[in-house]
Design a protein around this nucleic acid. Structure first.
Lengths: 116, 116
DNA sequence: GTTGTATGACGTAAACATACGACATTAATC
DNA sequence: GATTAATGTCGTATGTTTACGTCATACAAC
């Protein structure tokens, strides 16, 4: 079977899912944390700190770059990756809004039938 | 090739990735939003509101239930699903901590070589 | 120009996710 | 007990992700 047509979901739901997917692998979480904490952000250095081959790390980097969550700047022979901080702030807001819904649900209040 | 051994990443990174994965599909985002907004949360009603077959929705529900993000209470012939609000608050905190890192990076400051 | 090095692109195998029809299960109803 | 209705499970087809070796490219140094 084919996948669900994405048009059947709202743009907000798709966007949140897309960003969540970017964080859905520990390697990518680790990459973001590295970029946030290190003062150097050279591709090779990132790969060296992860238990994955350089090829695989490069793939994860491309995936994050495709979403514009990170930016790569070529500096001679090396490439320096950095977080796209403004976009991260946007994503932060999106997740905050979603979590606000999820943590204060209207469902299953005492008046309802179910009480799980 | 086999996947990276998860033990090569920290428990925090794994946990965040696991929860992000739960939100990495628009259908699951939609389900959470439905459970948060509706006062009824019967399995059949949820499926009826999504552009997916009842079987597929049931699968997504099981996935969320396996992570304990939602709870199901059997009420006769129907099953009522609800958000596990305390867990959602925990997850909210985890993401908040992560985003705090990602939005205030130490990298690529003016003193650094790269300026992307 | 040749060599060496950092990087991304390509190919591909294995694992996983998605989607749904058909069947099994369970409970209410007749 | 037979029927109907709401759910979940199983099987399975298809698409996607993950991982890595190998190759191509591009720059620097000689």
């Amino acid at each position: 079977m084919t996948y669900a047509r994405l048009t059947d979901f709202t743009a907000e739901q798709q966007q949140l899912a897309r960003m969540a997917k970017a964080l859905a692998h520990p390697a990518r979480v680790a990459i973001i944390q590295l970029l946030a904490s290190k003062t150097t952000c050279i591709s090779g250095d990132i790969a060296a700190e992860l238990p994955l081959s350089r090829t695989t790390v490069s793939q994860h980097l491309q995936e994050l770059k495709a979403l514009d969550l990170i930016r790569g700047e070529i500096d001679g022979l090396t490439v320096c990756y950095c977080l796209n901080t403004p976009l991260w702030q946007q994503v932060q807001q999106q997740f905050a809004g979603f979590f606000a819904q999820a943590t204060t649900p209207a469902s299953c209040s005492p008046a309802d039938a179910c009480n799980c």
